[in-house]
Design a binder for these strands. Structure first.
Lengths: 196, 196
DNA sequence: AGCGAAATCTTGTCAGTGCAAAGATGGCGT
DNA sequence: ACGCCATCTTTGCACTGACAAGATTTCGCT
């Protein structure tokens, strides 16, 4: 196929892998992790229901790739927050925590896939590495403050708890707050977990 | 079928509702929230796949009832911990937090159903009330310490984060610890969130 | 160029699932 | 004794994930 005219799509998609990932993210946002359907993803991308097989094997493969991509964006969201924060280690760690919560609220379905689902195969090298990178980033920040393993656990748990509860709409007071109040309340909580 | 001899079971189960709830909990523990199958529950209980319909309507109904039962046990687990702790408000709140983590590790599938799933209908009166009772219990404890809404959020988030991460096996250092060390590490983290 | 091999995508099939409707059974009140 | 009705089963439908086999295109190699 040298020329693609009209609406007739070529037999080969061109970049189906990327298209499927994008469609899967949409599907995930619309139907949630539990209502996720591989066939619906294929429909969304305009290909047959078996097309994903060649690129991802099965549903777990697709979701693993999506979760890995999620962890990369997760880290990027935290780093974006850090870039606008004061350079001292404490402020940087706080910013990372706020970014953690930001991500969960901005992409709840992806967050659930990454932290609350058993569907992805977390032994996949790509996924494992992406998750590890996010974890290492946290460890480095805590160490810069002179903290140890207990501090890593405390900070992580606090940020994760806030993110998970806020994402699932259980921290009701938070929703009634203005942006500034919300930020202040989250910061207050996160700072409690940070040593010093 | 007038006479029931051998292994032939009677047409009417007797207490199918309770049997289904028990079977559902087993199924949940074995297959996880995402692999949960209503028909498998029915098989486990030895009835036809449509039998649950009369008692619970659909899968969401069954899971809602199970989640409500989960919240009651969740509260009971916390209270059991409190009973063995010093009576001062601070120790009681700490005990509740440790109970929170206990529950998640003892019944991970149930915990995921209660906090990480969209399958139960959280607007169900029974479920809503059970969840509310657990939340109120936390609020009362925080208020006994003179804390406010921010303190409730901080303590809840810390306990929930620890529970969720520990349950999903992400707090690796925790697994390598002895019981005492583990307890001490969790207490250290929880106490950071408690005011005073 | 051109030809075979491999990659990519489609169609077809099968077992399993949730849900709904209709039929079978037996307890219970009158 | 009779009929009502809650309970349970059977049957049917649409959907899903996984697999197999076939169709189509592209790529590599000569």
């Amino acid at each position: 196929m040298t020329a693609v005219d009209d609406a007739a799509r070529p037999y080969h998609h061109g970049d189906l892998r990327a298209a499927l990932l994008a469609a899967a993210e949409q599907e995930l946002a619309d139907a949630g992790v539990e209502g996720f359907s591989l066939r619906a993803v294929a429909r969304r991308a305009g290909v047959s229901h078996a097309a994903p097989k060649h690129h991802f094997g099965d549903a777990a493969g697709l979701l693993s790739a999506l979760a890995a991509e999620g962890f990369r964006r997760f880290l990027a969201t935290q780093q974006a927050r850090e870039a606008t924060a004061p350079p001292d280690a404490r402020s940087q760690l706080l910013a990372a925590g706020l970014g953690y919560v930001d991500f969960a609220q901005a992409r709840p379905a992806l967050f659930r896939l990454m932290f609350g689902s058993a569907k992805p195969d977390f032994a996949t090298p790509d996924l494992q590495q992406a998750g590890r990178a996010a974890y290492d980033h946290l460890c480095v920040q805590v160490q810069a403050l002179g903290g140890g393993a207990n501090d890593v656990a405390a900070v992580w748990a606090m940020a994760h708890g806030l993110a998970d509860l806020a994402m699932s709409g259980r921290l009701l007071p938070l929703h009634a707050m203005s942006q500034e109040e919300r930020e202040a309340a989250l910061s207050d909580a996160i700072l409690r977990a940070i040593p010093g």
